[in-house]
């Protein structure tokens, strides 16, 4: 059966069909919570922020352009909220200027990983996410868990597409190094 598209539902909510917002929440609550778990550790903190994200999404739903994809829009709100939460906690250094953003990276084009590779990396990411620098963690999570494209990730993080590519490349390299050092993966 064909599922109604997120954008169609969002359009209905914009037109005043408030109840339909619960459909969007049902689709994204689990994903956003999983995304939040990559930043914060306390479930209560995550729960509060997820509620804040959906509240903001509802209040600002009319700013969503229904001709574009819904997922980058809601992940953008989630990204802002989680980054703000991290800043408040001061548990992690978040830098706003990164030289990756200045220059083009022609080598960092979107590459299709094999299914096995992707599943492996996802498992690895779950094991080693805490050790990854924040700037590599977020694109990796959005790419491997949330299955967003480079362009969609660029829209969420407001970064050049080539920067997303280079961060994914470097993130994967860090993960593979971590895998080589991990005895569980060498057995």
């Amino acid at each position: 059966m064909n599922e109604i598209k997120d954008e169609v539902i969002a359009r209905r909510v914009q037109d005043g069909r408030i109840d339909d917002f619960s459909l969007l929440m049902n689709r994204y609550e689990k994903k956003i919570t999983r995304y939040g778990k990559k930043f914060l550790y306390h479930p209560d903190d995550i729960k509060d922020i997820v509620q804040e994200i959906f509240t903001k999404a509802y209040v600002n739903i009319r700013s969503f352009d229904a001709t574009r994809k819904f997922s980058p829009w809601i992940y953008r709100i989630a990204h802002n909220e989680f980054v703000n939460a991290l800043k408040k906690k001061k548990s992690e250094k978040i830098s706003f200027i990164d030289f990756d953003m200045f220059f083009p990276h022609p080598a960092a084009k979107e590459s299709a990983d094999g299914d096995v590779d992707r599943a492996d990396l996802r498992r690895l990411l779950d094991d080693h996410i805490g050790k990854m620098p924040a700037k590599y963690r977020e694109p990796l999570v959005l790419y491997y868990f949330e299955e967003l494209s480079y362009r969609e990730i660029a829209d969420v993080l407001r970064l050049p597409v080539s920067t997303v590519g280079i961060r994914l490349q470097r993130g994967k390299r860090i993960l593979k190094k971590a895998m080589d050092k991990d005895p569980r993966h060498n057995n």
Binding site: I18, D19, M25, V50
Partner: peptide, 12 residues
């Protein structure tokens, strides 16, 4: 899940 969804819809 249901709780959060209901909470927001009710508030709306």
């Amino acid at each position: 899940k249901e709780g959060l969804s209901k909470k927001i819809i009710l508030a709306a």
